[in-house]
Design a protein around this nucleic acid. Sequence first.
DNA 1: CTATTTGTTAGAGTGCACTCTAAGTCAACT
DNA 2: AGTTGACTTAGAGTGCACTCTAACAAATAG
Lengths: 122, 122
Amino acid sequence: MSYYDITQVAEETGLTAHTLRYYEKESLVPEVPRDSGGRRRYGDLHLRVLKFVNALRATGMPIREVKRYLVLYETGEQTFDERLELLKSHREIVKEQLSSVKANLRIIDLKIKSYEKIGAPK
Amino acid sequence: MSYYDITQVAEETGLTAHTLRYYEKESLVPEVPRDSGGRRRYGDLHLRVLKFVNALRATGMPIREVKRYLVLYETGEQTFDERLELLKSHREIVKEQLSSVKANLRIIDLKIKSYEKIGAPK
DNA sequence: CTATTTGTTAGAGTGCACTCTAAGTCAACT
DNA sequence: AGTTGACTTAGAGTGCACTCTAACAAATAG
């Protein structure tokens, strides 16, 4: 079992030290133990959770929803069903967003083609 | 040629009247003429532009960039090349975002599958 | 031993995109 | 003529997700 300081975790996760402290304050990470000097000592669990949090955030899950997931996670195995539902519902939202973006990208693509063809749009 | 009031345009575009006024203040629409009573009279051009603005916004283009596009549009045909570049560069950004979201969605999907299979994630 | 770096906290500030409020005007209905 | 409702403006407020500041403590480098 290895431990990491905030700078290492920042590098590993792509988050800033500031953001890591903010995520902790917002309960987006399991409790982070401190060393004798009061500094954060992250473990492998934290790293794994933070990477999953990144996946949730990168797909547009709001902070308060990520927090809800983490609270369920911390509560224990009796929350499996609820966590599963949360993730499945998020997945549907993301899928809808994806197809919306794709549809709008097609509109932009048509405009680009009209600029390229006639040099002027209608 | 038909004219529309702010309520009709709100319905057609899915934007609120508030947002339409805000977009106008931010120069995201060509100039909107007023009637004798000072009320907005939108034409077909406005409707078409607003729908395209919606496509740009729905794909994550920031307000200031949409505004830049509109200013070029208003400036005239000598800006065709610049508008084309702006749209093409936006298209690339959107494509990258799409693949990032898809990659992260796969991570979430794996987690869902692990919840479904063993009822418990590692 | 001193200076620098890296961390700590609570809390304030930032940027974005709306979203709403207040105070007022104007048209249409009763 | 009065009331309702939709509109007008400038500007303030909101929610989100950071991002930064100030003041301080501790570890390391010279």
